Amino acid sequence: MIQDHPPLTVLLAAPRGFCAGVERAIQAVEDALERTGKPVYVRHEIVHNNRVVDDLKRKGAIFVDDIAEIPDGAVAIFSAHGVSRAVEREATGRGLSVLDATCPLVRRVHLEGQRHAKAGREVIVIGHRGHVEIEGTTGQIDGSVYVVESAEEALTVPVLNPERIAYITQTTLSVDDTREIIAVLKSRFPTIQGPDVKTICYATQNRQMAVRVIARRAERIIVCGARNSSNTNRLCEVAANEGRQALLLQDPKDLTLSFIDGAAVIGLTAGASAPEDLVQEALARLAQWRRLTVEEVRVTHEDAQFAPVDLSRLVSDASDPKVVSTFGINPMLIS
């Protein structure tokens, strides 16, 4: 069958796949499972990827949507997306031993929003309404908070005091779309304060940049990741904006021969919560149909490292409920 088809060049994007925040969150669950004798409950998917979640379930983690589902005395882990203050209070009030695996970059957005609120500014959060990260972020900020999803919404969002406005962003947005929204906000509110796109996760920006580069040569692009992953969906949008058909591949079976029919060069990448083995399985599936030449296209190197969630106090005295987290310190180390 392979002999009946022309060869296929695969441009493999780099960076791709797991970012430092995802790795830190997954490690927190694995460490808790290994080092505690208690059941380990994770509020929400630790990261948005079914394969990762299913693997942790096999190891013993229990995933829930609500703190109320976690029994008294258990270990509770917050996902990388972050949670609201109400969730934090409920967990500690229940006497749960809490590990906070919130991505440090998400926590940085929380702190930025809190700083603006304390200064008396209303806060506009640019992001996707209903996404778990946005729910956590808005729930961390006192005062008036508005969620804006598009440039159209930015044109009409009502505020109480146009002279006292700030904005923050979800960490997994499209860089181009976010710049457009910010431009609208700045035209409406000349004194608005905000970080441009700097609080969009470095990994999100790097993966989007890699898609733009490979789209110059690739006729179609495969994006490995989950359908409920914001950063994965944004990669598909970036490919489409570059005029390239994109396939969101959650399972290797999602890839069919018809998608590559007639193509000589395709691109392959993965969202920040997608494991590398999914990329390799996609390559193996392509190799069943075509003779492959795989070329890695690297646009930058990532060297960000985050301090791990510290379980030492939790393990030494598991009967003493506490939050083991990196609140109030800088958890980011650049090597």
Rank of each mutant, 00 (worst) to 15 (best):
D320S: 14
V297F: 01
V297D: 04
Q305Y: 03
A287K: 09
H301P: 01
F306S: 13
D303P: 04
Q288P: 12
V294T: 13
Q305K: 07
D317P: 09
D320G: 10
S316C: 09
V309M: 07
D310C: 05
L292T: 13
D310Q: 02
D303R: 06
V299Y: 03
Q305F: 07
R290L: 11
P308H: 05
E296G: 04
S319M: 13
Q288S: 12
S312H: 05
V309F: 09
D303F: 08
E302R: 02
E295G: 12
D310N: 12
D310I: 03
K322W: 02
R313Q: 10
T293N: 04
D310T: 05
E295P: 10
R298P: 02
D303H: 10
E296N: 08
A287G: 07
W289F: 14
W289Y: 12
A287C: 06
A318G: 07
V309I: 12
E296L: 08
R313C: 05
R313T: 11
D317T: 13
V315T: 06
R290E: 01
S316M: 10
V315I: 10
R290G: 01
D310K: 03
T300Q: 06
S312I: 09
P308E: 04
A287H: 10
L311W: 02
D310P: 03
T293V: 10
P308L: 01
Q288T: 15
L292Y: 07
R313P: 00
T293C: 00
S319L: 13
T293L: 06
P308F: 01
T300L: 07
S312K: 07
V297C: 05
H301C: 09
E302N: 04
L292F: 07
A304R: 14
S316A: 15
A318K: 06
D303S: 05
L292I: 13
T300K: 08
A307Y: 12
A287S: 07
A287I: 11
V297P: 03
K322C: 02
E295S: 15
